[in-house]
Amino acid sequence: MGRALAELNRIEAAHRSIFVAGWRPAVGWICAFAAGWAYIGHPLFVWAAAIYAPGLTPPAIETDNLMELVLAMLGMAGLRSFEKLKGRTK
């Protein structure tokens, strides 16, 4: 099963269509954008709203699930790098 899944992943990654090969990078970009917005964009927006529109209250952003996903992706990337370093994969 593991070899078949690895082969399927290789075939998907080599596909020319962004809808087949691009879903993993898309998840990474979405996580990066969401984390950037949560920790940089939203605080700047709150600051600007306090100056230019004092009555505006921007909605709070829940980051619990986002951070779980980001940390899981970073953990998997770290594991993959460790496997490559040890020579267990190509």
Rank of each mutant, 00 (worst) to 15 (best):
H42F: 03
A77D: 11
H15P: 06
I51V: 15
N65Y: 02
G78D: 04
W29Q: 13
K90Y: 10
R80N: 14
A49S: 10
E12C: 11
S81I: 08
G78T: 07
S17H: 12
T57N: 04
N65I: 01
A72F: 11
W37S: 00
F33Q: 13
P25H: 02
P58F: 06
R88N: 11
I18A: 10
P59N: 05
E68A: 10
G78R: 05
W23Y: 14
T63C: 04
T89Q: 09
F45K: 04
L79K: 02
G87P: 04
G28Y: 01
E12S: 11
V46A: 06
R88K: 11
A50W: 08
L69G: 00
A53H: 13
L56F: 09
A35K: 06
C31P: 00
V70E: 01
T57E: 13
F33S: 07
F45A: 06
W37L: 04
F33K: 07
I11G: 03
V70T: 13
H15M: 04
W37P: 00
G28N: 05
N9C: 14
R80E: 15
A21C: 09
A53G: 04
T63V: 14
A48Y: 04
S17W: 08
M1G: 10
I18E: 12
N9Q: 15
C31E: 05
A6L: 14
E12H: 09
N65L: 13
G55H: 10
C31G: 03
Y52D: 07
W29T: 01
A38V: 08
R24W: 04
T89H: 11
V27D: 10
P43D: 01
A13F: 02
K90A: 13
P58D: 09
A72S: 14
A38G: 07
G36P: 09
F33I: 07
A35D: 04
E7L: 05
S81G: 05
R10W: 09
A14T: 01
E62F: 04
R88Q: 09
A14Q: 12
G28T: 02
M67F: 03
R16I: 00
P54H: 12
P43V: 01
R24M: 03
W23P: 04
L71D: 15
V27Y: 08
V20H: 05
R24L: 06
E7P: 00
A48P: 02
E7Q: 12
Y39S: 10
G75P: 01
I40A: 03
M67Y: 08
A60I: 12
P43R: 05
A77M: 04
T89E: 11
V70D: 00
A32D: 13
R3E: 12
D64S: 15
P25V: 08
W37M: 04
I30T: 14
G2S: 13
E62M: 12
V46I: 11
R80D: 15
F19P: 03
A77S: 14
L66W: 09
R88A: 00
A72E: 15
A38N: 09
A34G: 02
W23Q: 15
A72N: 08
A35G: 03
P25A: 07
F45R: 03
M67T: 07
A48N: 02
R24N: 10
E83L: 15
L56D: 05
F33V: 08
I61N: 00
E83P: 04
R80M: 08
A21D: 05
G2E: 14
A53D: 00
K90D: 06
L8C: 07
I11V: 14
L69T: 15
E68M: 07
F45Y: 10
I30E: 15
I40W: 02
F82C: 14
N9D: 15
L74P: 07
F45D: 06
